[in-house]
C-alpha cells in the first residue's frame, strides 16, 4: 500500500504523558481523509508531527515515499505540506494580500509571482475585495478563509486542515464545506480534523478515528459510522454527541 502520506506506528509523548500512541494512517493521493476523535485524543499532536512541529519519539512518517519525521516545518512546506491551525492566527499587522503573499513566496521566485499566486488564492476563497485591509480587521469567518488562502498559496501537494470550521456560523460552515469540496475538485489531497460530523462525513473518502492517542478504527464514512467501537467511544458518547448537538 502506498499513499501520498504514510504515518507508520508513530508515538509522541510529553514528559511521560502519551499523546500519540502507535498511530498509523495513510492518505491516498487525491483523496479527502478525515481524522476524528474526542478532544485530547491526539489529533492535533499527530498533525504537529506530520507538519514538523513535533518530532515523534518513534515511528516513521513518509511523504512521497521519503522519511520526514525529523524535517523542520519550513522545509516540509517547501516539500509540499501546507497546513492551517486550530486557532486562527492571521498576521494582523499585514494586509490580507501580504498575508497570502507570505505563503506565495514559498513557490514564487519573485515578488510579482508571489503576489499573483496570493491574489489567485484569495480570489478562490472569496476575499478578492478585501486585499488591502489589515488582516486584524477581518471577522472570524474571513480569517478562516484567509488562513486557507495562505496555506494554498504555498502550493501544497497535501493540505492539512485543523478544524477549519471551528467558530463559524452554520452558513459560514456550509460555505467552507463547498470551498473545501472545490479545492479537492482541483486535485488537492486533504487530511482534515473536524468536529462537525456531517461536514466530515460528507467530505471524506476515508476516516480515521483516534482515541487516547491511538487509531481505533478506520474506513469509509459509512463503515466508521456503524463501527460499534466508534459509536461507543465517540459518536454515541457525550463528547461527540454534544458537539454534534451544538452545531445543529
Amino acid at each position: 500500500m502506498t499513499g501520498l502520506l504514510q504515518v507508520i506506528d508513530v508515538c509522541k509523548s510529553f514528559q511521560g504523558n502519551v499523546a500519540v500512541d502507535h498511530a498509523s494512517l495513510t492518505v491516498e493521493e487525491g483523496a479527502v481523509t478525515g481524522l476524528i476523535g474526542a478532544n485530547g485524543a491526539g489529533k492535533t499532536t499527530l498533525f504537529n508531527c506530520i507538519s514538523g512541529y513535533y518530532h515523534p519519539n518513534s515511528g516513521t512518517i513518509l511523504f512521497q515515499g521519503k522519511e520526514i519525521q525529523r524535517v523542520q516545518p519550513e522545509k516540509l512546506c517547501r516539500l509540499g505540506i501546507g497546513r492551517t491551525f486550530q486557532i486562527v492566527r492571521p498576521f494582523g499587522l499585514l494586509s490580507v494580500l501580504d498575508n497570502a503573499a507570505v505563503g506565495g513566496y514559498n513557490r514564487g521566485t519573485g515578488k510579482k509571482e508571489a503576489y499573483a499566486i496570493a491574489r489567485e488564492c484569495l480570489a478562490l476563497v472569496g476575499l478578492e475585495d478585501k486585499l488591502e485591509m489589515p488582516a486584524a480587521a477581518l471577522n472570524t469567518g474571513e480569517q478562516r478563509r484567509l488562513e486557507l488562502a495562505r496555506a494554498l498559496a504555498t502550493r501544497p501537494k497535501l493540505l492539512l486542515l485543523d478544524e477549519v470550521m471551528a467558530g463559524l456560523t452554520p452558513t459560514e460552515s456550509k460555505e467552507m464545506i463547498g470551498l473545501i469540496e472545490q479545492i479537492h475538485q482541483k486535485g488537492m489531497t486533504i487530511l482534515m480534523i473536524e468536529h462537525i460530523m456531517p461536514a466530515i462525513m460528507s467530505l471524506s473518502h476515508r476516516i480515521y478515528v483516534m482515541e487516547r492517542g491511538a487509531v481505533i478504527a478506520d474506513g469509509s464514512p459509512e463503515e466508521v459510522a456503524h463501527n460499534p467501537r466508534v459509536i461507543a467511544s465517540y459518536l454515541g458518547s457525550r463528547g461527540g454527541g454534544t458537539e454534534y448537538a451544538e452545531h445543529h
Partner: peptide, 25 residues
C-alpha cells in the same frame, strides 16, 4: 515592501505560522 520585510513581520506576529508557510525563520 519585499519578501524579507513582510516575512519579518510575519515572524513577529506568529513564528509558528510563518514556518508553516515556508518562511526560513
Amino acid at each position: 515592501r519585499r519578501k524579507f520585510g513582510v516575512c519579518l513581520i510575519a515572524i513577529k506576529e506568529s513564528q509558528g505560522v510563518a514556518q508553516s508557510l515556508g518562511v526560513p525563520v
